[in-house]
């Protein structure tokens, strides 16, 4: 892909990824075929900040986990009342990293 396109993508999407993953993503995109560009652009990423707010408000019901696609964990959280509240609180600290991990996984699945 052209460097210009890649840089544009990274500039508008960098909040969805861990900062230390950005160089790796850049390389991946540069190596990728031009035909993937349309696919990459249609990808829907989750905003870590939004998920964090959801986690703070409705983490006890597992809504945050449902939103990033961890349905199984979401059900577990919902039925155990946020894991007795402990899991819900620990997730406040984990969820942003988990969201970014999910985002990069999504991108990698399209590119490989």
């Amino acid at each position: 892909m052209e460097a210009q396109k890649v840089d544009m993508f990274i500039m508008s999407n960098n909040k969805f990824f861990e900062s230390h993953h950005i160089p790796q993503i850049r390389e991946l995109l540069l190596k990728a075929d031009d035909s993937k560009w349309a696919l990459v652009q249609t990808l829907q990423f989750q905003d870590p900040t939004t998920i964090l707010i959801v986690s703070l408000l409705a983490g006890g019901f597992g809504v945050d986990r449902f939103m990033i696609g961890d349905t199984g964990l979401g059900v577990g959280k919902l039925l155990t009342c946020g894991g007795f509240g402990v899991w819900a609180i620990v997730d406040w600290f984990i969820i942003m990293g988990a969201t970014k991990d999910k985002n990069i996984n999504k991108l990698q699945q399209v590119l490989y």
Partner: peptide, 27 residues
């Protein structure tokens, strides 16, 4: 921080802190 935060939730229950650090460790 996990073990400190969990103190607020489960002061009388020793297992709460352990669970909180364990979940974080697993993640």
């Amino acid at each position: 921080l996990m073990s400190l935060i969990a103190i607020m939730v489960g002061l009388p229950f020793p297992i709460i802190n352990l669970l909180a650090t364990f979940i974080f460790y697993m993640a």
